[in-house]
Design a protein around this nucleic acid. Structure first.
Lengths: 223, 223
DNA sequence: GTCTATAGGGGGATAGAC
DNA sequence: GTCTATCCCCCTATAGAC
């Protein structure tokens, strides 16, 4: 299986369309996402990539280094969406919520394993987050945050901690992805039903969020 | 492996107040909950229990058998609350929601690892659920479910699938527990702040759920 | 760059003394 | 029932031929 990379055009191998390093990363991403770091065996990654185990260490030195690369990329890909939308100057608060919901639900239809992967691995290894991402800034120093604060002020709604708003938004979006194995196992829900459920929530979640956090008629301050 | 517990006096060992089998289970529960099956080493369980590794296999035959016992007990403990409340004939729908929220939040203040533990391990091993628990019946053949259907009918609210209601309820409750490692790492939130956040949600979540699912003034049917 | 073969070590499980 | 010592497999990582 020699690797004649025809550099004149591209560095892509005919087998799978990717060069070896990329094939290994692709396989690693899939398996790490599904099973987590501890339960993943490098042998399985190599086999899924269609290469020999030794190549994995040739390209990435160790399982842990390979994992860190995958984790960085996944975290980055996941957070980049938020960052872009939260800082978009051309959209209203409501539009931002709609974009976040819609884009993340699309992502979670394709890759429902990502939230559980991130949550699990951050638990065992909390430094993963701090090292890489300035999450506080990414949330509290954004146009989104200013717009939200302004909306709350205009409506004279008693302030509950904004962390509730963020957690509810993220929670409502990712919950079906987290629950997918349980939905499949307990309710025999198949892929199409899951997808339909997710598509429904594209409309529902923004309305829910608006209703519970930004509706001054029955806001949080009524005791 | 006979287990004659001498009840006349006590079956308790002086060291720690529990007999050996119980000490091992206690240690196993803690570590399995924190790290999951794959990342847990039997040596660590034995050490945490203050006994020798060989005893673990003497009492439980294997890591896997020990794990299954822990998983069964944790799942049972988790689901039993729902079952009792959902079938309580003496409480209204609103009261049931309040009880669920309050009791589970108390549980998650003490043991925030449980949701992630269950979700993670069910993913790798979906049979765990089906074998043990009749979840469908546990949800759809309950007094709670009848009361919910009735409330929706009375208010003439367009029906969205009740799975949304359940997922939102569970999601809003467990979300902070799932996010705890991230909240600690990214926001330096300590145990007290987490507890206060959770206590706040005891009041907030029932109101939110009522507002988005049972308020006919601005229900889901407005387009 | 890619392979085969193997070193090296960790972790689950057991034998056997007490 | 509890311990020490040990087995043995499996998994990561590397050496070395091609």
């Amino acid at each position: 299986m020699q690797k004649i990379k025809n550099m004149s055009e591209e560095s892509l191998n005919k087998t799978g369309g990717l060069d070896t390093e990329e094939k290994i990363k692709e396989a690693a991403r899939t398996i790490f996402h599904q099973k987590g770091y501890a339960a993943t065996r490098t042998r399985d990654i190599a086999e899924a990539a269609g290469v020999n185990l030794a190549l994995l260490n040739y390209y990435f030195r160790s399982k842990e280094k390979l994992f860190n690369i995958i984790m960085s990329e996944t975290l980055g890909r996941f957070m980049e969406k938020i960052r872009l939308i939260f800082n978009d100057p051309g959209s209203t608060l409501e539009e931002k919520i709609g974009m976040i919901t819609s884009q993340y639900i699309d992502l979670l239809i394709d890759e429902p394993e990502i939230p559980l992967f991130i949550i699990s691995e951050v638990r065992t290894n909390p430094e993963l987050l701090l090292e890489k991402l300035p999450i506080r800034d990414l949330i509290f120093r954004t146009i989104f945050y200013k717009q939200f604060q302004q909306a709350v002020a205009e409506r004279r709604i008693d302030a509950i901690h904004p962390i509730h708003y963020l957690m509810n938004m993220i929670g409502l979006i990712i919950m079906p992805a987290l629950a997918k194995p349980i939905l499949q196992s307990a309710f025999h829900m198949n892929g199409d039903a899951y997808k339909e459920l997710m598509e429904n929530r594209k409309q529902l979640i923004p309305r829910w969020l608006y209703t519970i956090h930004l509706n001054s008629n029955q806001s949080d301050n009524e005791k």
